[in-house]
Design a protein around this nucleic acid. Structure first.
Lengths: 117, 117
DNA sequence: CACCCATATGAATATATGCTCATATGTTCA
DNA sequence: TGAACATATGAGCATATATTCATATGGGTG
């Protein structure tokens, strides 16, 4: 089976493939990049990030804004925290979330732009 | 149940929520934006798009480059076609794919940049 | 302390998604 | 026409993911 049945005998433009392979980035880079986009690939999370780009908000605010349960919002916020997209500060029992990084806004804005064209 | 159990009695910073709600974009926009990111949220697809940003390639080239079956690659290409991220031209039985839109490259590059920081 | 409330989280479930396998389509060439 | 091959696609399966439900944590207040 040579190379796990992948394009052994069939047509391949070897030169082109080699050139591209040479200029490809590492697997890890693609994984991290895709991971980053995966986070943005859910409308709930995009909404949350967009909202937080306007104003710092607490979980209850967000759940009121989005019409979702606290739990659902909290789960998504955990994801956004774990990926360092949002930060938070506590004021008594209230937890205020805000963007960790304005960089993400640019990414989202580009996504919006692309989606709306 | 009033408002489906979402932040009815509990704490909400009404003013902040109203202000943000006023400035939020429409649901459709968020769905489309997230949909766009969802496509980029898979490392196989990011690899394909990155490869095609270097050089036009056929299915077999791509499957050789990525070490994946033709079928897997073809399925992903269909997705990328349906979302207008790639275009193709036929040369006999060979189908050459290329980017439909250089815009996407900028998005991916930003993602890479963000992922690698 | 006892209770309320804002938030967090684990388990469960329903749905989405990526790949494989089998098969179909369409082109080239003998 | 028939064989070979590049690509496409449907079904099935395994895994990932978003939400719900139940429950935990922890601060505020009586």
């Amino acid at each position: 089976m040579g190379g796990e049945g992948v394009c052994e005998v069939e047509y391949v433009n070897k030169k082109a493939v080699q050139e591209v392979k040479f200029r490809m980035l590492g697997d890890k880079t693609f994984l991290k990049t895709a991971g980053c986009f995966k986070i943005l690939g859910d409308s709930t999370r995009v909404k949350i990030l967009h909202a937080l780009s306007i104003k710092e908000l607490c979980v209850c605010d967000l759940s009121a804004l989005l019409g979702m349960t606290h739990s659902a919002v909290s789960h998504q916020l955990r994801l956004l925290r774990n990926t360092n997209l949002v930060k938070f500060r506590k004021e008594g029992k209230i937890v205020y979330y805000s963007l960790a990084d304005k960089h993400v806004v640019k990414l989202i804005d580009m996504g919006i732009e692309h989606a709306e064209e």
